[in-house]
Amino acid sequence: MTATENAVHLARVAAQAAADKLATNLVAFDVSQQLAITDIFLVATAANDRQVGAVVDGIEEALRAHDVRRTRIEGDRDQRWVLIDFLDLVVHVMQAEERELYSLERLWGDCPRIELDVEETR
Rank of each mutant, 00 (worst) to 15 (best):
T2D: 14
A3F: 03
E5L: 14
A7L: 04
A11R: 05
V13W: 02
A15K: 06
Q16N: 03
A17G: 03
D20Q: 05
D20L: 00
L26I: 00
A28S: 09
D30R: 08
V31N: 06
S32P: 05
Q33F: 09
Q33L: 13
L35Q: 12
L35N: 13
T38Q: 10
I40Y: 04
A44Y: 08
T45C: 12
A46H: 09
A46V: 08
A46W: 08
A47R: 14
N48P: 10
V52W: 11
V56E: 07
A65I: 00
V68M: 08
R69S: 15
R70C: 08
I73N: 09
W81S: 04
L83P: 05
I84G: 03
D85V: 10
F86V: 09
F86M: 06
F86P: 06
L87K: 11
L87C: 12
L89D: 02
V90P: 04
V90D: 02
H92N: 13
V93I: 15
M94R: 04
A96C: 02
A96V: 11
E97S: 10
R99N: 05
L101Q: 05
Y102C: 01
L104K: 11
R106M: 11
L107R: 06
I114V: 15
E115D: 14
L116M: 03
V118M: 01
E119G: 09
E120A: 12
R122P: 12
